[in-house]
């Protein structure tokens, strides 16, 4: 096991941040932590990267105990915090050299690992890190976290605040790194990114809701979901919410995801109801549950 977490709890001045968290990440796995802001993802990362000590429970990273062998962990993991935290007044190359040196290595020694990513920022290697664009900063941060060939990589919301194209690129890079045998724990608030992970854990208010593969996790969703669409979105949501048999109503892109409390639900009833509310161009179709639906259901 690359990461093994057993009953970890952490609270700050009486406020619970993590409650009895347990999970395991296999070697070479891309494991996603999915949850809203304030769910405790960053706290969990800080515990696993030996920056925080948990109140209860134990955990190992690369078979090292996070408290007893914290020094060995620091030699074997890479951490990319959510906030860009490199030296803004040093150039791209200087930042990379700095992190290589403090890990007792050189850029040349591990160049093959970062090559794919580094070539993209190499044209700007003499530019100060603070002057890079958001996507470039993320790439540099990833390079710096990889420069010492870590066995496990921790990425805390690496794509928050990054444009969709860069986000996609970033996840492709992670996939390639996975092929090189690096175990990764990634947190993200984006549900679409979760589908790329091998396994995901849904986390909210410091508690694990569910751990499974993205494919299986949506099967936990037992209800039939309907995509509902009409000419007036606001009116539609309002009407659906006041419908007496509604179980859940969530806006989802151009549709509204609707579930009903009855087992013998027929879309025609709903159609009549919505027409009576002066809505036009109504369409109601069955759709597949997504991770987002599952999360919403579990978090309810």
């Amino acid at each position: 096991m690359s990461i093994s977490v057993n009953n970890i709890s952490k609270s700050f001045k009486g406020k619970t941040a993590l409650k009895n968290i347990s999970f395991e990440v296999k070697k070479g796995e891309l494991f996603g932590l999915i949850g809203p802001d304030g769910a405790g993802k960053t706290t969990l990362f800080r515990i696993l990267t030996t920056l925080l000590i948990p109140n209860h429970g134990e955990a190992t990273v690369v078979d090292f105990d996070i408290i007893k062998d914290y020094k060995s962990i620091r030699n074997n993991v890479g951490y990319m915090p959510g906030r860009f935290s490199l030296y803004q007044d040093l150039t791209v190359k200087e930042n990379l050299e700095f992190f290589a040196t403090i890990f007792g290595t050189t850029i040349e020694k591990n160049y093959d690992l970062i090559k794919d990513i580094y070539v993209q920022i190499e044209p700007f290697k003499d530019r100060r890190a603070g002057k890079l664009s958001g996507g470039m900063k993320q790439k540099l941060a990833l390079c710096c976290a990889l420069i010492h060939k870590p066995k496990v990589l921790f990425l805390d919301e690496p794509t928050t605040g990054v444009d969709p194209v860069s986000r996609k690129e970033f996840w492709e890079m992670l996939k390639r790194l996975q092929n090189k045998g690096i175990t990764m724990l990634v947190s993200t608030p984006y549900m679409d990114e979760a589908a790329i992970c091998d396994r995901i854990a849904l986390i909210q208010d410091g508690e694990m809701l569910e751990i499974d593969t993205p494919k299986k996790i949506v099967k936990h969703y037992s209800k039939t979901i309907y995509n509902v669409k009409a000419n007036n979105m606001y009116q539609l949501i309002k009407s659906l919410k006041s419908y007496q048999h509604n179980y859940s109503v969530y806006p989802f892109g151009e549709f509204v995801h609707y579930t009903d409390t009855r087992t013998d639900f027929s879309p025609i009833d709903l159609q009549h109801y919505l027409t009576s509310k002066n809505l036009k161009n109504i369409s109601i179709e069955i759709t597949q549950a997504t991770i987002e639906d599952t999360f919403m259901e579990l978090a309810k």
Partner: peptide, 13 residues
Amino acid sequence: EIGTLEQINVTPI
């Protein structure tokens, strides 16, 4: 303030 201390702390420095 800029968060680099945290980055430094996870290194074997």
